[in-house]
Write a protein that binds this DNA or RNA. Structure first.
Lengths: 349, 349
DNA sequence: ATGAAAGCGCTAACAA
DNA sequence: TTGTTAGCGCTTTCAT
């Protein structure tokens, strides 16, 4: 054990072991069978390197090999159960491949999104996973110019493979469930199901609205435009909108399809001020799952997207790209109220 | 707009603009006042660079400057509201400094923790933030050997500055609140407050147990050992333990101090099977805040640790290190039941 | 079975 | 005001 100032390099180890830098490099990087270095020497080099606290300078290796050992992912926000579990899976699969994950959040800002992609390219990441992109076209352009492999998760992008969850199916399932549970009170406006949250031009939201609309239409209850309140993702907006809706209706609607956890947070922010029992005549659903939302004061039907499989498939698509632009769909699951689902990392805390 | 195979380098731009590589470098890196390059030339270089889709190769720059522009952080898990909001803040502050955050989760595995530190060192990150370390000593050793600046968040480490939240105070506040709310039923064992979750040897948990114990002792109710169930963080363990406890007592205890969100998830997993009304005679508290936990079927008193300030202070300590080993404490806040708190990123979704 | 040397793309001294 | 050159630490031919 030595060391003080500078970090040890292969030259230091070379000097200490009497081998050449290239031998040290090969011994330490595992490329030593090909070079047929004696096991003895490898042992010695390994020992001395460990003693010196040597570790490969990844910037140098990366520069030389024109790759970094990093993988990038862009998510809208960290502080959201859906994306947080994506991060967890992304990291796990990255580790399996000895890659270091770099996860950045865009706050759903297209400008920020592009900045992040440029940064990741600068760092020569292996590939980029883009979840919940707001401007997939721009991203593909940037990546194409830099010859960067990328995959879209959660919404399809042009010119790159995508793995998305079946939003149409999920929305249908949730809407059907809500529909089966509405308790009419002879108040036409109130007795409808409302859709709240998300951005209507976002792919995922658009597909969910389609599912929502189709199920209602098939039931002979085609939704009017004011039933679809795509007020964005920020909690505050959803809070304002649900308050306004309740004002208009004089009550909560018979059914509520909340389109994201963040919108649901806002809805909850409003509910908090309501007297208990206010929800008895409403049925609530949320697209996306949160364990704590499973046991609220009122039952909540949730759709759980399988973020783990989403990421797994995304890695697959990146690693052996099929010819043409692939779009792979993963089925979401309906989680009944009061159900705690333990994810793939449930053993940890 | 050109480009096909290789990415453009400063040499390409140099050739295209008739300037030298170093001029191009200076023009593009912003170091050009010092070099007094004519604005004209800078403009030209900028334009051509943009046209060529040039972007700095950060591995090369990093190798040359012996730093990478990356900052590392280690958290136990991504999928947890407390650590997820830390990530969000960590990223925001990193961006302010033009640094790229690399966030890795250790799953509270000391081995993994060390592996991550080594990896981050290999990538020459600027500094490392360690949240919820399980083996701070080992981390400091590794960092010291590599001369790596680091800061402990959430628990104090040896040989490096730390910024922690005042766990003792938070636990006192929460315990006092619970104590004030217990509804005795003349059943000595049941009428007590139980502490569940966490690892007794972890710093944070230890401090919280102290606070818990002290408040109870001051109230003339010194806790017996079986009142403190430090069964770890995994939800499943907490679920088993709360079930066992309920078996022993024949009922839920009068008060429950849940020591983390993950343990709380487990507790909830048990509660789900209980008939409604089971909680009317229990008062529940949770150390750490989750917006969805604010509106459960039963009221929950929560302690919100100010992760944003924690991270802010940590950056401060890293950037101008005070002489000696600093430990800075940040006060947590008690959040009453049914309160939705909007964090610093509440505008986003 | 091993060593010498070139070069990845950049920046920083040093010249001019 | 700008150009030349060395070198960051590594991998990789090419010799031997």
């Amino acid at each position: 054990m030595t060391m003080q100032g500078r970090k040890a390099t292969i030259y230091d180890i070379a000097k200490l072991t009497g081998a050449s830098p290239s031998t040290v490099s090969a011994a330490l990087s595992g490329a030593w069978k090909a070079r047929r270095i004696s096991e003895q020497k490898v042992e010695l080099i390994r020992r001395i390197a460990a003693e010196q606290g040597y570790s490969t300078n990844m910037q140098a290796r990366g520069l030389r090999q024109a790759k970094s050992g990093l993988v990038g992912m862009i998510i809208p926000v960290h502080d959201n159960r859906y994306f947080a579990s994506m991060s967890q899976s992304f990291e796990a699969f990255a580790r399996d491949r000895d890659l270091v994950p770099v996860i950045a959040s865009s706050m759903r800002d297209p400008m920020e999104e592009r900045r992040i992609v440029e940064t990741l390219i600068s760092y020569a990441v292996d590939s980029i996973f883009i979840a919940g992109a707001t401007d997939p076209g721009a991203i593909t352009d940037l990546c194409a110019a830099a010859n960067m492999r990328h995959v879209f998760v959660d919404l399809p992008g042009p010119g790159a493979p995508s793995v998305i969850s079946d939003n149409y199916l999920g929305a249908r399932m949730l809407t059907q469930t809500l529909l089966a549970g509405v308790q009419p009170r002879r108040n036409p406006a109130r007795d409808r199901i409302y859709f709240i949250g998300g951005v209507a031009t976002d792919y995922a939201t658009a597909r969910r609205i389609e599912g929502f609309r189709d199920v209602l239409t098939e039931a002979g209850l085609p939704p009017s435009p004011e039933q679809i309140i795509a007020c964005g993702y920020p909690p505050k907006r959803a809070m304002q909108e649900i308050a306004a809706l309740r004002d208009r209706l004089g009550d909560l609607p018979a059914g509520l399809f909340v389109n994201s956890l963040t919108a649901f947070e806002g809805v909850l922010g409003h509910f908090v001020h309501l007297p208990p029992g206010s929800f008895d005549r409403s049925i609530i659903g949320c697209y996306d799952y949160d364990p704590f939302a499973a046991y609220l004061q009122f039952p909540v039907h949730m759709v759980r997207q399988d973020s783990h499989r989403l990421i797994e498939e995304a890695y697959r698509l990146i690693e052996d790209p099929a010819p043409g632009i692939t779009v792979r769909e993963v089925e979401p699951a309906l989680i009944p109220p009061r159900t705690i689902y333990a994810g793939p990392f449930g053993e940890h805390g």
